[in-house]
Amino acid sequence: MTTTKLLEGKKALITGSRRGIGAGIARLFAEHGADVGINDVVRDTEADKTMASIESLGQKTSWHQADVGKTEDRTRLLDEFVASHGRIDILVNNAVASADIHFTKITEEFWDNLVGHALKGYLFLAQGAVNRMIEHGHGGRIINISSVHSYRAWPHDTVYGIVKAGLNRMVMSMAQDLAGTGITANCVAPGYIDSRVLTEEEEPERGSADNLGSALSFIPSGRGGVPRDIAGACVFLASDLGDYVNGQTITVDGGLLSGGVPPDSQPLEPGQPGAME
C-alpha cells in the first residue's frame, strides 16, 4: 500500500465489479482514497467480500444491482449512484460476459446480446455519466476496459474482438466531442489476466507462471496479469497523473502483443458448445 493517495475524495462507479478485474479496480481505487460504487447483475458472497474490503480501507461503498445491457437499468444505476455519492467523477465500464464461438455459429441473438451489453451498454452508460459530469461542471473520467482482442484475433473471438475494437474507437470520438468539458475518455486493454475466484490462502498464487501453461511463452513479463495491474492503469488515467491522456488505449499485457508469436489458445473441439460442425 502506498501513502501517496491519487484519488482522494473521488466518486467512482465501476461496472461488473463484484469480483475479478472490476473488484481489483474497486479495491485499488479505495486504497487511493476514492469512494466506490459496486455494480453487477447479482449480489453474492464475492460482492459482499469486495464491499467489505473497501469499507475496511475506510472508504464509502454502495451496491447497485443492474444489467448495463438494459436501458432502464443504466438510468437507474446512475441515479442510484449519484443519490448515494452526490456526484460521479469516474466511470469504469468493465462489465462483460462472453463465450467462445466459431464464426459460422454466431447467431443474431449472440451478437445482439454481446454488442448490446459491451458496446451499446458502455456507450449509453458513458453518455449518461458524461451528462451528469457536465451538469456538475468539474470534469470527469470515462475508462472503458477493452482487450488485446481489439488488436489481434484469437480463435472464436469475432464478436468480442469487434466490440473491444469499437471501444478503442469510441474513446477517440469522445475525446473529440467532449473538448472543453474537462472530461477525458480512454481505454485500458488487458492481456491475459488471472481473475479466478481464489481463497485467501490461494491468493499469492494469482498470476504465477505455474498457472499459465502454454500462454507463458508468449508473455515477456513472465507472469500472468492480475486485476491489480489493470487497476493500476485505471488509477493512472483517473488521477491527475493522467490529466493529458485522452482518446487513448493503454495496453496492459506484460508485453503479450509485442511478440510476433501466434496466439496461444486452441480452437474448440468438435462437439463443444460454439464449435464449428
Binding site: 493529458y244 491522456v245 496492459v252 499485457d253 508485453g255
Partner: peptide, 12 residues
C-alpha cells in the same frame, strides 16, 4: 505489467 507499449500523452 505494461511492457512493450507506447502511451500517447497528447490531450487527444
Amino acid at each position: 505489467y505494461v511492457n512493450g507499449e507506447t502511451i500517447l500523452v497528447d490531450g487527444g
